[in-house]
Design a protein around this nucleic acid. Structure first.
Lengths: 192, 192
DNA sequence: GACTTGTTAGGACGGTTGTCCTATTTCCTG
DNA sequence: CAGGAAATAGGACAACCGTCCTAACAAGTC
């Protein structure tokens, strides 16, 4: 096992802390402590807090693309791929119950801070949106693919927000199932 | 027109700033400036930042109850009342596009801060949930009223989050309409 | 007019923050 | 082994934060 670079360790720790505590409420000291390095060393790698936020967003974006690419290479049908997306809610429910959706909570915070990196954070949403749209297009839904994509995205965001508020596993499973049923209905409409 | 008390002015300004900038990112000085009073005067009314957060939450809770009570006294049917709730998204879309849902974004922030007032903020969600549950019960849906209530709540949260990310009026209207159609379907199932 | 009570103003405090600087150490290259 | 670049440590800094204190003002009562 090769040692990770200090820079990568910083980005990973910052990613985790931004998710758990929020961007604004996470300090340089918090991240440096988590990586066990000095603040001076931290400054060597990232000059400003915005720099590390940008690095974290880039890393999340890359990870998102990798995940979506992998689903497309697994040879599933478009419908099965969309179901993979929906079921993130189930697989990550422990974290979502604690800290909500990583994308949704970050964009909402950056919007309130008036932070210039808001646009880049929103682009992660766009990556999901475009990927979902392509899946619906491949299902034959060329006309309203984007609208269907946004509906899936909105559904998952609603689940994440309420999952965090009520911390109810049954609610999550029920709503994921409902979204799955909706997907089945869309697919059968298209077949007909 | 009677003058409002300084205390009420503080709570109103804090409510607005917490919504626009977030709780943590809003300082005593910000609020004092908005009300045009000194920090010392501010401290006379609220000893700690948690005190004013609590006052803001109480005020929001009271306003929420008032709004829901009013809808019940207007003599509408339960289904029409639920539709009133859904259409908040339309009426408040300008603010929602800028700052998201006031309840959803606050609870998500307090969760990340590990703030002790999270429970009270979540109670606002519970007020909506219970009210919606009662409406579905009055529609005859006694068995799954709570589940239906959570579905409406989740739907509106999803709309609010994506409305803030993409700032798309058509998306909001389309999703609100879809939620309305879902409500019609639930109602017709019940009648049958 | 003195006294009391509620209200406002403005500054002091200790702590934390993001940022920056300067030594010191580590490591690779010739 | 020498020398230079990359990396790390640790502290200094100005600004801001929540909190607290004290003095002044306002208004009504005896």
């Amino acid at each position: 096992m090769t040692e990770k670079s200090t820079r990568d360790n910083i980005v990973e720790a910052a990613h985790q802390l931004f998710y758990e505590k929020g961007f604004d409420h996470t300090s340089f000291a918090d991240i440096a402590d988590a990586v066990n390095i000095s603040r001076g060393n931290f400054y060597y790698h990232f000059k400003t807090k915005d720099d590390i936020l940008k690095a974290v967003i880039d890393q999340r974006m890359a990870a998102t693309r990798d995940m979506l690419d992998a689903w497309e290479k697994e040879g599933n049908t478009p419908k099965e791929r969309i179901r993979c997306f929906i079921e993130i809610m189930i697989n990550n429910r422990a974290k979502i119950k604690k800290h909500g959706c990583p994308v949704g909570t970050l964009t909402s915070e950056l919007a309130k801070l008036g932070h210039p990196a808001l646009g880049e954070a929103n682009e992660i949403f766009t990556v999901f949106r475009d990927w979902l749209r392509r899946q619906f297009e491949q299902m034959g839904r060329t006309k309203d693919a984007d609208e269907l994509a946004l509906h899936v995205l909105a559904g998952s965001q609603g689940i994440a927000t309420l999952a965090s508020a009520f911390r109810d596993d049954k609610f999550i499973k029920r709503e994921v199932e409902a979204l799955g049923d909706w997907l089945d209905a869309v697919a059968s409409e298209t077949d007909a």
